[in-house]
Design a protein around this nucleic acid. Sequence first.
DNA 1: CGTCATCCGCTTGTATACTAGTGTCCCGCC
DNA 2: GGCGGGACACTAGTATACAAGCGGATGACG
Lengths: 241, 241
Amino acid sequence: MPAIQNDPATGGDAPLDMSLRLERGGTVSDQVYDALRHAIVTVRVLPGASISENRICRSLGVSRTPVRSAIVRLAEDGLIDVYPQKGSFVAPIRLAAIAESRFIRRVLEVAVVRDAGAVWNATHSAAARAAIAEQARAIAAGESEAFFRADEHFHHIFSLAAGHEGAWAAIVQANSRLGRFHRLFGNKDRLPVVLQEHTGVIDALDAGEVDRAAHRLEDHIDKVFTLIDHLPEDLRRLVEG
Amino acid sequence: MPAIQNDPATGGDAPLDMSLRLERGGTVSDQVYDALRHAIVTVRVLPGASISENRICRSLGVSRTPVRSAIVRLAEDGLIDVYPQKGSFVAPIRLAAIAESRFIRRVLEVAVVRDAGAVWNATHSAAARAAIAEQARAIAAGESEAFFRADEHFHHIFSLAAGHEGAWAAIVQANSRLGRFHRLFGNKDRLPVVLQEHTGVIDALDAGEVDRAAHRLEDHIDKVFTLIDHLPEDLRRLVEG
DNA sequence: CGTCATCCGCTTGTATACTAGTGTCCCGCC
DNA sequence: GGCGGGACACTAGTATACAAGCGGATGACG
């Protein structure tokens, strides 16, 4: 199955099939939601791409109703902008929104990791290091999506340890915007550095030095923003601001 | 028009009209969403109340489609739980979720107010004190909804000053859960104290003492949780956990 | 050749009909 | 009287048809 993709040179609004496939059970609406969300977050469909309800429901062989339902939810998530009577489009990556998402994530995660430090034990440490190992494997294998999945898993461990599932939900929501930014502008050379930073946080936690862990995590998340200074010119038009 | 309300003694799932009215323009779906959300957050419909699509669309004189769209969005907000083929119900107030919302709000608002302190000026101060004055007026007039509205406005000022609109959106989302808790279990005797705490934060900001302002705000938000220790027995069953 | 009006196709929004599943209530049976 | 089964009302999920509005293309007119 060829991964037909919107041509970046046209601004990404070419009316092409986005090779969506419905996977698991559940309602059709949920399946469409998952498929669309995954396609957007992994930038298989680029910011600005046209999301036509008719095209999608034809492409998936379902009616407009569940597709509309999924789009409503994605609009609520801020991943799709709906312009009545004109069209729906994958939300652009706004630099202001990226800055806010980074702020939210940094503040919440630092607070979470401080709480996690109070109950940190060997089990948590082992889980975190396993996630780091998976990231290393993904880098070696060149599986970028596996890397991002393991990255999310790594960061989730702090929330799990601290019992802050609600905060994790908020972090994930902020991350859905950051995720697209990472995948578009992430530098492969930095991936090993990410692993070092992750390891540094866990080392500090294992040593019981919560403050140091918090500062390292803060620096780690802040580093994301250095990407903005080095936006490749050919991708710069995919962001606003 | 009598404000027919679900009977608390029955668990709130009496199939009664909830006196919804559509106000302003925009799409019908948006109007239904606003009306339902307002009714839920202000606990005019209690946690556990049945949300029947058919009943609502009959009551409002619209079709099921926009009602469904609104319910999907509210479910995404965590205010409604949808059980396929069984029914949709106003989400219960889960103590765990309240704790998480408080955590999120405290962490985010403290970080925001620190940034706001860096740019704090007389205009911000005047706006904040105006909001406090409005709260005092609302207390004197016994207009509880006006009080809550002014309270939200007060807290919004920090985000506006610091330019953290995204963080404010996250705060509002967490607050939609806390809001119901406040309205159900809030103690009227504490309202004047709230005003004092608000004034204390602004005083500290005006004096340029950002740390003190942050600590006062943190204490202020944490005080919410003292309500949990004094849940009236007759309302206790409205919460989970 | 330029400009304006009209038409047509596309979009999302809304209304209605149908499907599949669940829980209840009532009636018949034991 | 107690228990079991089936009809029935109700739920949300899905499909389809219609309405309203925007925009571009097209063709006539100046």
